[in-house]
Every structure is written in C-alpha cells, then in structure tokens.
Design a protein around this nucleic acid. Sequence first.
DNA 1: CAAGCTTTGTAACAATTGTTACTGTATTGC
DNA 2: GCAATACAGTAACAATTGTTACAAAGCTTG
Lengths: 210, 210
Amino acid sequence: MIKEIKNKYGHLFEDELLEEINQVGTFKEIPEGFELIKPGSYIKFMPLIISGAIKVLRGDHDGDELLLYFLEQGDTCAMTLSCCLGHHKSEIKAIAETDTKLVMIPIKKMEEWTTKYKSWRNFVFSSYHKRLVETIETIDSIAFLNMDDRLLKYLKDKAKISHTKIINTTHQQIAYDLHTSRVVISRLLKKLEKKGIVKLNRNNIEVLEL
Amino acid sequence: MIKEIKNKYGHLFEDELLEEINQVGTFKEIPEGFELIKPGSYIKFMPLIISGAIKVLRGDHDGDELLLYFLEQGDTCAMTLSCCLGHHKSEIKAIAETDTKLVMIPIKKMEEWTTKYKSWRNFVFSSYHKRLVETIETIDSIAFLNMDDRLLKYLKDKAKISHTKIINTTHQQIAYDLHTSRVVISRLLKKLEKKGIVKLNRNNIEVLEL
DNA sequence: CAAGCTTTGTAACAATTGTTACTGTATTGC
DNA sequence: GCAATACAGTAACAATTGTTACAAAGCTTG
C-alpha cells in the first residue's frame, strides 16, 4: 500500500505521516456503483482516494436526490471530515462512479493528526475549501443555468472524471442526478444530438464536443 | 472591546487567545447595507461577528446573484477563511443585513493560531462545517422547492435573523436575493397575503405565521 | 402642490420544465 | 424462442416561472 499512497500523497504529506497512514489505514478496492455512504448513517472512517472517482449526492427525506460533485484522486470527502470531527449524521450519499481504490482512515486519528501535522491541517483546510467552492458551483448551475446547459455540463464533467468520451448510463439515471424526469432528459439529449454535440446509443452517450 | 469578545466568544476560546484577539483585532461597527466583501476582491481580514447579521451572496460575472446564507453572532465567514488560507480571490459578496459589530482579524494571525490553539482549530473546522451544511440547505431550497416555498422560507429566515416580524425590503430586493424577477415575487407575495400568511405594505412585509 | 421617481398590482403572453400516456426496440431470463 | 422487463422516442398537455407592458399609489424634492 505504501507505494500507492506515496505516489498520490507524497507531495502533500511528510514521510512520518505517510508511514502513519500506512500503519492505521485500510486499503480498499470498491467496485463501480458501490454505495459508500448512506444518508442518515454515522461515519466511522474517512476515505482518501487513491484512484477512481466517487460521486456525492444530496438525498432528502422523500427520496429526492441531486448530484453535488465528484471526488477524484487526491480528494477526500469534506462532509465525512465534518461528520467525523463534529460527530454529526451524514446528510449525503456517496457512490463509486468508477472502480475506486482508497484508504480508510479511522476517525480517531483525524484529530490527532490535525494537532500533530501541519501538512494534514492544510490538507483538511484545502479539502473543505475545494468542497465549498464546488458546492457553490453546483448552486451556480442550478440557479443560473437552464436544464439543457446543466445537462451538457453534467455530461462533460462525467466524461472528464472517467477519462472517456463514452458515458455508460441511462436517461433515467441522469434524471435522478439532475433531479428532473426521464422524459425531460430524453428530450434535451435528442436536441443535443441534433446539434451534433452528442451521439446517442442504448445505455451510452458519446460526447463529441469536449 | 475585550468585554464584548469575552461575552460572545468566551465559551469557545481560552483566555490567552481572547487576549490575542483583543490585541491584534480591530473593532468595527458596520451600518446596515454596507458591502463588506465584493466579488473578485482579495480579502485581508477575517471578521468575527459580535452582533448583528451579514448576508452572503453568490455573485456571478453577469451581475446575477443569489443569497447563500446569513451569518450571525458567533459566526465567521468560511469563504473568507479559505480565501485567507488559500490566498484565493473571493467568489462571493457580503453585505451587512443589520447594523453589525465585528472584530477584524489580520489573516496572518490565522495560520499562527491554527497551529497554536486547539480551540481555534475547532472553531475554524466547525465554521466550515456550518457553512457547508448551510450551502447544501440552500441547494435543497433551489432544487427541491418551488418559488412560493422558497419565498416563504426566505421571509422566515430573514425575520428570524433580524429578530422581528416586520421585514423592511422591496419586492425587487427579494427578487435579487432569490434570483428571479420582481413580478414573480409580487405575484407570490399577493398569494401569501390572500392565504393570511403575510401582510403587505409599502417597503415592508409582516410575517404573520412564524 | 406639481413633477418625477420608486414601489406595487395586474394582465397577457412566452418559455421552460414537469407529467401522463403510449409506442417500439433492445435485452434478459426462462 | 417467448415472455417479461428495461430503455428510449414522442406527443399532448399542465404547471411553473419568466417577460413585457402599463397603471396606480406613495414618497421626495424643489
């Protein structure tokens, strides 16, 4: 494990901290679609992402949901952080977007490390910052964009995160992520196809313009 | 100054830190409507709110804007925090919602204190957490609620924050905060009045049901 | 108080998004 | 292969929100 951690986090953390991560962390390989965090559950571990991608959604009481942002290599989940440090319930849902490798850190170490390592503190602060900025960008999309532009942005983000132009998903799944209906997505996708921006197939969408 | 800081922050910070705040902080009284943070500007001080309230908005390039949340006594601005620590530009706008008293902390002290004081670290973490949660709640409103419910929530929040049932504002101002048009707000307010939930006057709205 | 400005009310209409219903076509499981 | 299921296309319509336009009422200032 130490090699992969060093590879992805070596430029951030000092050797001593890397060694501690190696000691107390648990390496995990998560398959695409696996639900890492369920709304309402208590979180006992904090994930450091080695490779792959995780999508983080807001889920309300009625089963409505909405994509907040994606996490990539080098990221951690700020909601997890604050749930850990504040011992709150999770207000979110996290699902592996692709096959993902990560290291689970017991929450107990978190507080210890914030005291002990400056690099860890900076990492935590910068994670919070990134997540806050991304959440606000999500607000931008919902508040300032029409559904067609939100859809296009969603497709581009998804293509970027999984490093492919071909997105394997259904219209219904997109509808869930954007909190709208399947019919609306089908309609707008057809419009995008007519404009030559995407190519539609069963269970997959090819983004032609990136 | 020390008395007011101790009064509002005494339960959070140890005496030594309170003393430092007293030494390096600048006490300020801000009138209602004063623009504390402009989008695109660099921030050099971090405000600790003693009393009053500040509203924080997202402002995009085209002059579109949207209310993110209110800050109250005991709060600080997480965006400021991360701007300070990360030396980023502000992506937001902050305006005094009521007459407000606050202490401005030079950003240089921030990092020093995160190393030195555990209580300060916890304060910063908890501020981030609160802001992240509130930002996500704002997403809930925009994504899951219709404009009439958003409007009612806005009115109740505003009444709560300024400790009064009577809100002094114009329909146009509400429209800016909720990023819609004045006509829409007037229309929905009239509906709320017919339902007996609010009473409308020129330049003020009385919220009857809290 | 008269002119000008701000604020609010309202109607008529447009655009966007949401809903229901029904179709056809792939895919899966037996 | 056949039935069941999942997925996508489309139309027709409803609801919500946005836009334009104009009138009336209240405040401000000379």
